[in-house]
Write a protein that binds this DNA or RNA. Structure first.
Lengths: 298, 298
DNA sequence: AAACAAGTGAAACATTTGTTTCAGTCTTTT
DNA sequence: AAAAGACTGAAACAAATGTTTCACTTGTTT
């Protein structure tokens, strides 16, 4: 009986050969390893959405006789890797040779990203988000513009928004010339514009045009006085600090997601039903891969 | 709301006032904190050389009602989690009045996002990122596929990558049928695939096709055993936990940005020159609003 | 259709768990 | 020395745990 030094590996390689329910359990365990170390078997089973017997069967399937043995592995793993942030930083700094220069860079990227997101949810921005939200709720049409590096965040919002509202327009120039989609924009609409320095001309033009038509603007930008945010009715200022040459649009994306979450939360039951209907439609179009158990993950 | 921020401190200060047997127990717990997190109360009592009742009495003496609560503190400490999830959920639920429900939602969103990003830069993922990076550097072509909610992150990478390398292909279906762009994919290429549950059929098909052509796959996904990550040469597992109905792709975006940063950093001077040239070209195309220097500022 | 095997979850089972009870011990005070 | 009071640990208890059993479903083969 060889002792499995790494049974996470075994779980992954054998995954395909497991029965559907065991896969469900295996997946939860792979995704939540510390749960195994800390919680009881029944609790893990409950969290994974399977009966306790499935966990037992899974263990015998991968050659582990008892839950105690199984749990022991995960406990050791947890003890071997304290991996506290401070400690990790200290370690990477201690040995500053070329070997782990990459680790060091990534570590500082992580910190910067976290800082940016923290700043993006400061009280001032939060207040702006809420008022932006109200503007969107009352708008006839919601135009979203964001080019270049800002496009992902714009797309993200448009994509999610479309699932529960049909008055959103993503101005991306895919359908004809850029800006064509803005035709008819007016006082009762809202334009959500995203962009940071260097400001892309198209985006600024769209904002100027909207303003000339008396359409209120919600700006997600890097400054209160950026050409996009100037005269905007709501200014969501996010930092785009980055360790690399490029700006980081993580915070912008996060803010857009938060905006969606806020709209859904305020929309109540009706909105949830619309989302359910949209998902239903996507499922009917065979968009998603069929999965045995249509449960939602935690 | 006096939550015991640190009950190890309490254990030390009250140590003198405890009865001899309780001191024995307290001392063992102070010396073996992880035992509390991982083993049962009776096991701890046995190891400390005291009857179980002593542990109970010790807990009541320092103001903890139940072993579960006691153990919970030590488990959080082991996980290096500043605040427990359960506690956080309780806090956000506590003030469920309509007044500042929005603020609370946003605050908890922010926390979740930060957690997700922290997890995305864990040592395991960092290691995978570096090996993924090397694969990209040696690849003939770099294909990027990500649909639906994963598209923003895919686009972000493709957009940034294009500025310093011309062998990237964003598989987005804009040019004809989806998957057409994969023609000719082979052993010497790399496919970067993004996707989380529910898995979009197109993405999985692209991954399967790439695998059938012996093309190595870099997977950015929500599990080690997701249909995208299975058999991938590099698995970047990111959490997509979200307060709202939708998944959060913030961590995925952040990882993609970090990948770009890593590529640039490793590319050295030559890469920087290419980026400068690309920006120059964009400026000549009048893409940006006139501003003196297109270089980033602090 | 029938037979079969594999997969599954509710229930049952013996342990083990955290906690309480209580009789005995020890120290301190009178 | 006796009484009072706090300490202590064995035993008792209900609740929860890990595991096994067994009908039942499901999908496949004959």
């Amino acid at each position: 009986m060889g002792v499995h030094s790494d049974l996470r590996e075994k779980l992954i390689t054998d995954y395909a050969k497991l029965s559907p329910q065991m896969q469900k359990a295996a997946r939860y365990i792979l995704d939540h390893p510390s749960d195994v170390a800390l919680r009881s078997m029944r609790a893990v089973a409950r969290a994974a959405g399977v009966p306790p017997s499935t966990i037992t069967r899974l263990m015998t399937a991968i050659g582990v006789d008892t839950w105690q043995e199984f749990r022991g592995h995960y406990q050791n793993r947890l003890l071997d890797q304290p991996a506290s942030y401070a400690q990790r930083a200290r370690e990477t700094q201690r040995t500053e040779n070329d070997a782990n220069r990459d680790e060091h860079l990534l570590e500082s990227i992580a910190r910067t990203e976290i800082d940016n997101i923290s700043a993006a949810f400061s009280p001032e921005v939060v207040a702006q988000m809420i008022s932006a939200c109200k503007a969107v709720e009352n708008a006839r049409h919601v135009f979203i513009v964001g080019r270049g590096a800002a496009y992902p965040a714009a797309y993200q919002f448009a994509y999610a928004y479309r699932l529960f509202c049909d008055n959103g327009v993503l101005v991306d120039g895919h359908s004809g010339a850029f800006g064509d989609e803005l035709r008819g924009i007016g006082r009762r609409d809202v334009l959500i514009a995203l962009g940071a320095r260097p400001y892309i001309r198209d985006t600024v033009r769209a904002v100027d045009f909207a303003r000339s038509q008396n359409c209120p603007v919600i700006a997600i930008s890097d400054s209160d006085v950026s050409p996009i945010a100037l005269d905007a009715m709501a200014k969501l200022v996010v930092r785009d600090t980055s360790q690399s040459f490029f700006q980081s649009f993580t915070a912008a994306l996060s803010v857009m997601q938060a905006l969606v979450a806020l709209l859904v939360a305020r929309g109540g039951e009706k909105t949830l039903q619309r989302i359910a209907a949209a998902e239903e439609q996507l499922a009917r179009f065979d968009t998603y891969l069929e999965e045995k158990s249509p449960t939602r993950n935690s």
